[in-house]
Write a protein that binds this DNA or RNA. Sequence first.
DNA 1: CAAATACTAAACCAATACGTTTAGTATATG
DNA 2: CATATACTAAACGTATTGGTTTAGTATTTG
Lengths: 130, 130
Amino acid sequence: MVALPPDAALTDVGTADAVLDRTFAALAHPVRRAILGRLARGDSASVSELAEPFDVSLMAISKHVAVMEEAGLLAKQKDGRIQRCTLQPESLHRAAGWIEAHRRYWEAQLDALSHFLADPASTPPPEDSR
Amino acid sequence: MVALPPDAALTDVGTADAVLDRTFAALAHPVRRAILGRLARGDSASVSELAEPFDVSLMAISKHVAVMEEAGLLAKQKDGRIQRCTLQPESLHRAAGWIEAHRRYWEAQLDALSHFLADPASTPPPEDSR
DNA sequence: CAAATACTAAACCAATACGTTTAGTATATG
DNA sequence: CATATACTAAACGTATTGGTTTAGTATTTG
Protein backbone atom coordinates (compact mmCIF):
# COMPACT_ATOMS: atom_id res chain seq x y z
CA MET A 1 0.00 0.00 0.00
CA VAL A 2 1.27 3.42 -0.82
CA ALA A 3 2.18 5.23 2.37
CA LEU A 4 0.70 8.68 1.99
CA PRO A 5 2.04 10.85 4.82
CA PRO A 6 -1.30 11.26 6.57
CA ASP A 7 -1.04 14.99 7.14
CA ALA A 8 1.28 16.00 4.32
CA ALA A 9 -1.02 18.81 3.30
CA LEU A 10 -1.51 20.06 6.82
CA THR A 11 2.07 20.43 7.94
CA ASP A 12 3.15 23.16 5.57
CA VAL A 13 0.06 25.28 5.26
CA GLY A 14 0.95 28.70 3.97
CA THR A 15 4.23 27.57 2.50
CA ALA A 16 4.91 28.01 -1.19
CA ASP A 17 4.01 24.81 -2.96
CA ALA A 18 4.40 24.60 -6.70
CA VAL A 19 2.49 21.33 -6.93
CA LEU A 20 -0.51 22.86 -5.22
CA ASP A 21 -0.20 25.86 -7.53
CA ARG A 22 -0.36 23.61 -10.56
CA THR A 23 -3.12 21.46 -9.13
CA PHE A 24 -5.46 24.35 -8.38
CA ALA A 25 -4.60 25.96 -11.72
CA ALA A 26 -5.47 22.71 -13.47
CA LEU A 27 -8.79 22.57 -11.63
CA ALA A 28 -9.61 26.12 -12.73
CA HIS A 29 -10.60 25.11 -16.26
CA PRO A 30 -14.07 23.63 -16.88
CA VAL A 31 -12.88 21.29 -19.63
CA ARG A 32 -10.22 19.87 -17.36
CA ARG A 33 -12.68 19.43 -14.51
CA ALA A 34 -15.04 17.66 -16.88
CA ILE A 35 -12.25 15.36 -18.00
CA LEU A 36 -11.35 14.56 -14.41
CA GLY A 37 -15.01 13.89 -13.70
CA ARG A 38 -15.19 11.48 -16.57
CA LEU A 39 -12.04 9.69 -15.49
CA ALA A 40 -13.31 9.52 -11.95
CA ARG A 41 -16.41 7.62 -12.89
CA GLY A 42 -15.31 5.91 -16.09
CA ASP A 43 -11.87 4.56 -15.35
CA SER A 44 -9.15 5.22 -17.86
CA ALA A 45 -9.63 6.58 -21.36
CA SER A 46 -7.58 7.50 -24.39
CA VAL A 47 -6.93 11.12 -25.31
CA SER A 48 -9.30 10.80 -28.27
CA GLU A 49 -12.03 9.37 -26.07
CA LEU A 50 -11.55 12.22 -23.63
CA ALA A 51 -11.75 14.73 -26.48
CA GLU A 52 -14.92 13.38 -28.02
CA PRO A 53 -17.52 15.31 -25.95
CA PHE A 54 -15.87 18.67 -26.58
CA ASP A 55 -15.92 20.79 -29.69
CA VAL A 56 -12.34 21.91 -29.49
CA SER A 57 -9.46 20.38 -31.39
CA LEU A 58 -7.82 17.17 -30.29
CA MET A 59 -4.65 19.17 -29.83
CA ALA A 60 -6.36 21.40 -27.29
CA ILE A 61 -7.40 18.36 -25.28
CA SER A 62 -3.94 16.89 -25.59
CA LYS A 63 -2.61 20.08 -24.02
CA HIS A 64 -5.20 19.97 -21.25
CA VAL A 65 -4.15 16.43 -20.53
CA ALA A 66 -0.52 17.54 -20.39
CA VAL A 67 -1.42 20.27 -17.90
CA MET A 68 -3.16 17.77 -15.65
CA GLU A 69 -0.29 15.35 -16.01
CA GLU A 70 2.18 18.03 -14.90
CA ALA A 71 -0.09 18.76 -11.96
CA GLY A 72 0.03 15.08 -11.04
CA LEU A 73 -3.71 14.71 -11.50
CA LEU A 74 -3.44 11.96 -14.08
CA ALA A 75 -0.86 9.71 -15.66
CA LYS A 76 -0.49 8.65 -19.25
CA GLN A 77 0.52 5.14 -20.07
CA LYS A 78 1.45 4.34 -23.61
CA ASP A 79 -0.32 1.27 -24.93
CA GLY A 80 0.52 0.81 -28.58
CA ARG A 81 -0.39 4.00 -30.34
CA ILE A 82 -2.89 5.14 -27.74
CA GLN A 83 -2.19 6.97 -24.51
CA ARG A 84 -4.31 5.61 -21.70
CA CYS A 85 -5.05 8.33 -19.16
CA THR A 86 -5.58 7.27 -15.58
CA LEU A 87 -6.63 9.35 -12.63
CA GLN A 88 -3.86 9.86 -10.13
CA PRO A 89 -5.67 11.06 -7.07
CA GLU A 90 -2.86 12.16 -4.81
CA SER A 91 -2.68 15.71 -6.11
CA LEU A 92 -6.41 16.06 -5.73
CA HIS A 93 -6.03 14.63 -2.26
CA ARG A 94 -3.50 17.31 -1.43
CA ALA A 95 -5.73 20.06 -2.80
CA ALA A 96 -8.59 18.76 -0.69
CA GLY A 97 -6.16 18.68 2.21
CA TRP A 98 -5.34 22.35 1.88
CA ILE A 99 -8.99 23.28 2.02
CA GLU A 100 -9.68 20.81 4.83
CA ALA A 101 -6.84 22.27 6.85
CA HIS A 102 -8.65 25.62 6.82
CA ARG A 103 -12.16 24.32 7.19
CA ARG A 104 -12.58 24.70 10.92
CA TYR A 105 -11.49 28.32 10.66
CA TRP A 106 -13.73 29.37 7.85
CA GLU A 107 -16.65 27.46 9.26
CA ALA A 108 -16.51 29.80 12.21
CA GLN A 109 -16.46 32.65 9.72
CA LEU A 110 -19.47 31.13 8.00
CA ASP A 111 -21.48 31.68 11.15
CA ALA A 112 -20.38 35.29 11.41
CA LEU A 113 -21.12 35.76 7.74
CA SER A 114 -24.62 34.42 8.06
CA HIS A 115 -25.38 37.03 10.70
CA PHE A 116 -23.94 39.72 8.49
CA LEU A 117 -25.89 38.60 5.43
CA ALA A 118 -29.07 38.40 7.45
CA ASP A 119 -28.79 42.12 8.23
CA PRO A 120 -26.02 43.88 6.28
CA ALA A 121 -26.85 47.23 7.85
CA SER A 122 -26.09 45.89 11.29
CA THR A 123 -22.71 45.92 12.90
CA PRO A 124 -20.53 43.57 10.89
CA PRO A 125 -19.54 40.31 12.56
CA PRO A 126 -18.17 41.12 16.02
CA GLU A 127 -14.45 40.65 15.49
CA ASP A 128 -11.50 42.17 17.23
CA SER A 129 -11.09 45.64 15.75
CA ARG A 130 -7.41 46.21 15.28
CA MET B 1 -29.20 31.48 9.30
CA VAL B 2 -28.24 31.58 5.68
CA ALA B 3 -29.73 28.62 3.89
CA LEU B 4 -26.90 27.19 1.85
CA PRO B 5 -28.38 24.62 -0.53
CA PRO B 6 -26.75 21.63 1.10
CA ASP B 7 -25.67 19.95 -2.09
CA ALA B 8 -25.31 22.91 -4.39
CA ALA B 9 -21.88 21.78 -5.51
CA LEU B 10 -22.89 18.20 -6.02
CA THR B 11 -25.88 18.64 -8.28
CA ASP B 12 -24.14 20.12 -11.28
CA VAL B 13 -20.85 18.30 -11.34
CA GLY B 14 -19.25 18.59 -14.73
CA THR B 15 -21.25 21.62 -15.70
CA ALA B 16 -19.47 24.82 -16.68
CA ASP B 17 -19.23 27.02 -13.63
CA ALA B 18 -17.49 30.35 -13.88
CA VAL B 19 -17.46 30.85 -10.12
CA LEU B 20 -15.65 27.57 -9.61
CA ASP B 21 -13.24 28.56 -12.38
CA ARG B 22 -12.40 31.78 -10.61
CA THR B 23 -12.23 30.13 -7.19
CA PHE B 24 -9.74 27.46 -8.23
CA ALA B 25 -7.76 30.03 -10.21
CA ALA B 26 -7.62 32.25 -7.14
CA LEU B 27 -6.37 29.32 -5.06
CA ALA B 28 -3.61 28.63 -7.58
CA HIS B 29 -1.37 31.46 -6.36
CA PRO B 30 0.74 30.97 -3.22
CA VAL B 31 0.41 34.58 -2.11
CA ARG B 32 -3.36 34.36 -2.32
CA ARG B 33 -3.42 31.08 -0.42
CA ALA B 34 -1.24 32.65 2.25
CA ILE B 35 -3.59 35.61 2.50
CA LEU B 36 -6.58 33.30 2.85
CA GLY B 37 -4.70 31.36 5.50
CA ARG B 38 -4.03 34.50 7.43
CA LEU B 39 -7.63 35.62 7.19
CA ALA B 40 -8.81 32.18 8.23
CA ARG B 41 -6.94 32.28 11.50
CA GLY B 42 -6.69 36.00 12.13
CA ASP B 43 -10.12 37.38 11.35
CA SER B 44 -10.34 40.42 9.13
CA ALA B 45 -7.42 42.60 8.09
CA SER B 46 -6.78 45.68 6.01
CA VAL B 47 -5.10 45.46 2.61
CA SER B 48 -1.93 46.99 4.07
CA GLU B 49 -1.89 44.48 6.90
CA LEU B 50 -2.31 41.67 4.41
CA ALA B 51 0.52 43.08 2.30
CA GLU B 52 3.00 43.44 5.13
CA PRO B 53 4.52 39.92 5.11
CA PHE B 54 5.22 39.96 1.37
CA ASP B 55 7.93 41.77 -0.50
CA VAL B 56 5.82 42.78 -3.44
CA SER B 57 4.19 46.16 -3.88
CA LEU B 58 0.99 47.09 -2.10
CA MET B 59 -0.59 47.39 -5.53
CA ALA B 60 0.18 43.76 -6.28
CA ILE B 61 -1.57 42.71 -3.08
CA SER B 62 -4.47 45.00 -3.86
CA LYS B 63 -4.88 43.15 -7.13
CA HIS B 64 -4.65 39.76 -5.45
CA VAL B 65 -7.36 40.88 -3.08
CA ALA B 66 -9.49 41.95 -6.04
CA VAL B 67 -9.03 38.54 -7.66
CA MET B 68 -10.17 36.81 -4.49
CA GLU B 69 -13.06 39.20 -4.14
CA GLU B 70 -14.23 38.42 -7.69
CA ALA B 71 -13.96 34.73 -6.85
CA GLY B 72 -16.18 35.33 -3.83
CA LEU B 73 -13.46 34.20 -1.45
CA LEU B 74 -13.43 37.41 0.53
CA ALA B 75 -15.36 40.63 0.86
CA LYS B 76 -14.09 44.15 1.34
CA GLN B 77 -15.90 46.48 3.63
CA LYS B 78 -14.93 50.10 3.59
CA ASP B 79 -14.32 51.48 7.05
CA GLY B 80 -13.07 55.02 6.80
CA ARG B 81 -10.04 54.97 4.57
CA ILE B 82 -9.25 51.33 5.16
CA GLN B 83 -10.72 48.34 3.40
CA ARG B 84 -11.40 45.56 5.85
CA CYS B 85 -11.10 42.18 4.17
CA THR B 86 -13.20 39.36 5.53
CA LEU B 87 -13.18 35.73 4.58
CA GLN B 88 -16.30 34.69 2.72
CA PRO B 89 -16.20 30.94 2.90
CA GLU B 90 -18.97 29.94 0.55
CA SER B 91 -16.79 29.86 -2.55
CA LEU B 92 -14.23 27.77 -0.71
CA HIS B 93 -17.06 25.57 0.44
CA ARG B 94 -18.14 25.06 -3.16
CA ALA B 95 -14.58 24.26 -4.24
CA ALA B 96 -14.31 21.71 -1.46
CA GLY B 97 -17.69 20.40 -2.58
CA TRP B 98 -16.47 19.74 -6.08
CA ILE B 99 -13.57 17.70 -4.80
CA GLU B 100 -15.72 15.93 -2.23
CA ALA B 101 -18.21 15.00 -4.93
CA HIS B 102 -15.47 13.07 -6.69
CA ARG B 103 -13.75 11.68 -3.66
CA ARG B 104 -15.41 8.28 -3.52
CA TYR B 105 -14.49 7.68 -7.13
CA TRP B 106 -10.87 8.63 -6.93
CA GLU B 107 -10.41 6.86 -3.64
CA ALA B 108 -11.18 3.66 -5.48
CA GLN B 109 -8.57 4.73 -8.02
CA LEU B 110 -6.12 5.33 -5.19
CA ASP B 111 -6.25 1.64 -4.35
CA ALA B 112 -5.63 0.70 -7.95
CA LEU B 113 -2.82 3.24 -8.11
CA SER B 114 -1.12 1.84 -5.04
CA HIS B 115 -0.91 -1.55 -6.69
CA PHE B 116 0.47 0.02 -9.82
CA LEU B 117 3.09 2.05 -7.95
CA ALA B 118 4.11 -0.97 -5.94
CA ASP B 119 5.07 -2.74 -9.17
CA PRO B 120 4.95 -0.50 -12.23
CA ALA B 121 6.06 -3.29 -14.53
CA SER B 122 3.06 -5.34 -13.60
CA THR B 123 -0.24 -5.22 -15.39
CA PRO B 124 -1.68 -1.76 -14.79
CA PRO B 125 -4.67 -1.52 -12.47
CA PRO B 126 -7.23 -4.14 -13.53
CA GLU B 127 -9.79 -1.95 -15.23
CA ASP B 128 -12.15 -2.67 -18.04
CA SER B 129 -10.05 -2.52 -21.17
CA ARG B 130 -12.10 -0.73 -23.79
C1' DC C 1 -5.47 73.89 6.02
C1' DA C 2 -1.44 70.83 5.21
C1' DA C 3 0.53 66.57 5.26
C1' DA C 4 0.42 61.79 5.97
C1' DT C 5 -2.12 57.40 5.28
C1' DA C 6 -4.71 53.84 2.74
C1' DC C 7 -5.71 52.63 -0.86
C1' DT C 8 -7.11 52.43 -6.41
C1' DA C 9 -6.74 53.76 -11.56
C1' DA C 10 -4.08 53.71 -15.58
C1' DA C 11 -0.46 52.55 -18.43
C1' DC C 12 2.88 49.50 -19.29
C1' DC C 13 5.75 45.04 -19.75
C1' DA C 14 7.03 40.16 -19.77
C1' DA C 15 5.36 35.71 -19.27
C1' DT C 16 1.84 32.33 -19.44
C1' DA C 17 -2.64 30.36 -20.97
C1' DC C 18 -5.64 28.74 -24.48
C1' DG C 19 -6.78 28.08 -28.75
C1' DT C 20 -5.71 27.36 -33.73
C1' DT C 21 -3.35 25.11 -38.01
C1' DT C 22 0.13 22.56 -40.22
C1' DA C 23 3.30 19.08 -40.17
C1' DG C 24 5.41 15.04 -38.29
C1' DT C 25 6.04 10.43 -35.71
C1' DA C 26 4.65 6.02 -34.35
C1' DT C 27 1.59 2.24 -34.57
C1' DA C 28 -2.02 -0.58 -36.68
C1' DT C 29 -4.64 -2.32 -40.48
C1' DG C 30 -6.25 -3.45 -45.41
C1' DC D 1 3.61 -1.58 -48.68
C1' DA D 2 0.14 1.98 -48.38
C1' DT D 3 -3.07 4.13 -45.75
C1' DA D 4 -5.47 5.24 -41.70
C1' DT D 5 -5.30 6.16 -36.74
C1' DA D 6 -3.64 8.32 -32.47
C1' DC D 7 -1.38 11.31 -31.05
C1' DT D 8 2.57 15.29 -30.40
C1' DA D 9 5.76 19.21 -31.98
C1' DA D 10 6.16 23.73 -33.63
C1' DA D 11 4.68 28.11 -34.77
C1' DC D 12 1.42 31.38 -34.30
C1' DG D 13 -2.35 34.88 -32.49
C1' DT D 14 -4.80 36.74 -28.85
C1' DA D 15 -6.16 37.23 -24.03
C1' DT D 16 -5.08 37.05 -19.36
C1' DT D 17 -1.90 37.15 -15.40
C1' DG D 18 1.30 39.09 -12.35
C1' DG D 19 4.14 42.38 -11.62
C1' DT D 20 5.87 47.29 -11.93
C1' DT D 21 5.62 52.67 -11.62
C1' DT D 22 3.33 56.93 -11.53
C1' DA D 23 -0.44 59.53 -10.42
C1' DG D 24 -4.73 60.22 -8.26
C1' DT D 25 -8.73 60.04 -4.65
C1' DA D 26 -10.47 59.70 -0.02
C1' DT D 27 -9.81 60.05 4.70
C1' DT D 28 -7.26 61.11 8.94
C1' DT D 29 -4.26 63.58 11.69
C1' DG D 30 -1.06 67.39 13.14
